[in-house]
């Protein structure tokens, strides 16, 4: 039995220890917002957070997630999901949309750690996430906008 927390909910699951976190959350927990793209940590479609860091869930065996806290697109905290979703909507980023959960989960860590990322910061943080529709220019714009929204939201809540 493996114990883990996903989006704040605790689970105790009977799983093969080599099963990647991606398939635990998709096939066992039914959370399909996290996507399979390559299975070898090359495309970033499966990005989730484990104890606050972005991981490639397709190559992370569930044994490594034991006792840890996983956050998926469905459970991203509002201080990050709100500005990101607002920005993604404003810029109209997605095309097919398949990679966008992973893009947003990667961007969430970036704007959490770097409140005002430069283009270069964005390149470094996002180069691991492939978008075959090539919405990269809009992702970049949306990250800039989300970081502005996030800091103004933070200012508002501080008042």
């Amino acid at each position: 039995m493996i114990k883990l927390t996903v989006n704040g909910k605790s689970y105790e699951l009977d799983l093969p220890s080599d099963m990647p976190v991606l398939w635990v959350i998709r096939d066992r927990l039914g959370l399909t917002g996290t996507k399979y793209g390559c299975g070898v940590a090359q495309c970033g479609a499966c990005t989730v957070h484990m104890d606050g860091e972005a991981i490639r869930s397709c190559v992370t065996p569930v044994s490594r997630a034991a006792g840890k806290s996983i956050v998926t697109i469905e459970g991203l905290e509002p201080s990050l999901s709100k500005p990101l979703q607002e920005a993604w909507t404003e810029i109209d980023v997605p095309q097919c949309g398949y990679c966008q959960s992973g893009q947003i989960m990667a961007a969430a860590i970036l704007i959490r750690d770097q409140p005002q990322p430069t283009d270069n910061d964005i390149d470094n943080a996002m180069a691991g996430n492939i978008c075959r529709c090539c919405t990269y220019l809009r992702i970049r714009q949306a990250i800039h906008l989300a970081s502005r929204l996030k800091s103004s939201n933070a200012m508002l809540s501080a008042i």
Partner: peptide
Amino acid sequence: DTPDKING
């Protein structure tokens, strides 16, 4: 289709 493509 944007709203559903950014929340999973």
